[in-house]
Design a protein around this nucleic acid. Structure first.
Lengths: 197, 197
DNA sequence: TTTTGTAAGTAAGTATCACTCACCTTATTT
DNA sequence: AAATAAGGTGAGTGATACTTACTTACAAAA
């Protein structure tokens, strides 16, 4: 199988592009189906030919973005040698990604997770793949002796992801700038070396 | 001033109680004003006599819960002596609180933050007070030499809050159990001692 | 070439929802 | 008794997500 291209009619592409564009301007709940259709140059009814509902449209757009992100980060990770260096890279790359595309991040960090349907979506599947990647690196780090043997890898993953997400949450919400390198290095230092004097 | 009781007519109380009850069953967006009114035994119009809109109702219910939580935790913190012990307590108490009242947590963790109006609400003010409490403890810990002098207190706060929130997020969303004591101790160990072997 | 089947797309709905507004009722103040 | 005001009502209203019955385009089968 060369590609998984399911038939992609022009209307479908236009709708997704229209929606993606509108996402740069306003938040999900204030984008109307009428706007999406008008902006795409199709009728409202066509949206429901290709998408179950408005949320399904959101999840499919998100899915595409997630896949792109994951491809990018997978390549970068292979360049790091140690497990800790890999985790450092994940922290840095995640922060970069969140801050580069703030509107998308806002949706990921505080829009999609409150709907059960998201957890059945392809977009969520991508999130779990990313999470599994992180877990594997942690487990490798423990196996190689880089990370303390008594570390709970699942909990460490939670701390890392939680730190990343919360570190940029306020900045994403309020549109404030953030020194990404410094923040990434700071998180890494706290988690790997600890803060006890 | 003995109490700040602003006039609290029965209809208002019934609406808040009705809404609180419905929150135990379903998520915010799927609760309709018609349901709230019917459940409260009042008419829909009355909701808008006392609340600006549906979100305002949510924030006022949240505010009450936050105040209760903050009172409880403030008392517990004074019992700890060292700064690290205080932070340990905050991690533990926060996890306890989130998991004890999962429905409220779901709202806090993934419902309210996507609306700008929340950040102008009294409920948000309570969040900032809590955050300031944590920051002060960190700064005291740095001053007393318990926490490494080169630690960025704002970033450490983010890591702690992020770790707490993410540690219980999945469990709250999917209704899974969590060993609170173990999780709290694990987070504390990671952040204070680091995971490097 | 004609027929048929199907996918793409349309246009005009409908149901539901948050929210409004003019009005009623009751009790307290003057 | 009259006035005022607060508590409460119920019938709207506009907007919005979603539906449904239809049309067009076009390729494969006959």
């Amino acid at each position: 199988m060369i590609g998984k291209e399911k038939s992609d009619p022009p209307g479908r592409i236009k709708i997704m592009a229209s929606f993606s564009g509108l996402m740069q301007e306003k938040d999900f709940s204030s984008i109307t189906t009428a706007q999406i259709a008008k902006n795409a140059g199709v009728t409202e009814g066509l949206i429901y030919k290709y998408f179950k509902d408005k949320k399904d449209l959101l999840y499919q757009v998100l899915d595409a973005h997630f896949q792109e992100f994951h491809e990018k980060i997978k390549i970068r990770i292979t360049q790091a040698t140690s497990s800790i260096a890999k985790l450092d890279l994940i922290i840095l790359a995640s922060l970069e990604e969140y801050l580069e595309n703030r509107l998308l991040s806002k949706i990921i960090l505080l829009e999609v997770r409150n709907s059960q349907a998201f957890f059945n979506s392809g977009a969520y599947k991508m999130v779990t793949i990313y999470a599994r990647t992180i877990l594997k690196i942690i487990q490798e780090g423990i196996a190689s002796g880089e990370i303390a043997a008594d570390t709970n890898p699942y909990l460490l993953r939670k701390v890392i992801i939680g730190a990343i997400e919360h570190a940029c949450l306020g900045e994403v919400i309020f549109g404030k700038p953030l020194d990404i390198e410094k923040t990434a290095a700071g998180i890494s230092d706290i988690i790997f070396n600890g803060v006890k004097a």
